[in-house]
């Protein structure tokens, strides 16, 4: 929603980076703790969900996609969708063979 942001180069404050870093480390520790408790198939889902949240922080803040053009951000989303689609379709094939 910031249209002019890409014109002048956006400088990310140190504080923001430190906050994101602490969130990422906390999420890592949570995912380690959660997976130590046996929750069956739910463990996989939780671990991958946390990984997805972590990667969105890395992509949006560290790789500053949040401040880039829509075009670039949508290309990244497209690549992620392609990979997910391939994994999904391949697993469908194995599940219902």
């Amino acid at each position: 929603m910031e249209p002019t942001e890409s014109e002048t180069h956006h400088i990310i404050p140190y504080r923001t980076l430190l906050i994101v870093l602490s969130v990422l480390i906390t999420l890592t520790l949570i995912s380690v703790l959660v997976t130590q408790i046996s929750l069956g198939t739910l463990t996989v889902t939780i671990a991958l969900l946390i990984a997805a949240v972590k990667s969105s922080f890395v992509l949006r803040i560290f790789m500053h996609l949040k401040f880039e053009s829509r075009f670039l951000a949508s290309m990244v989303v497209a690549v992620i969708l392609i990979i997910s689609a391939v994994i999904f379709i391949t697993l469908l094939d194995y599940l219902y063979r």
């Binding site: 990310i12 430190l18 994101v20 870093l21 990422l24 480390i25 803040i61 560290f62």
Partner: peptide
């Protein structure tokens, strides 16, 4: 993760 933050 820390190294990612430091390069940023």
């Amino acid at each position: 993760l820390i190294s990612s933050a430091t390069i940023a």
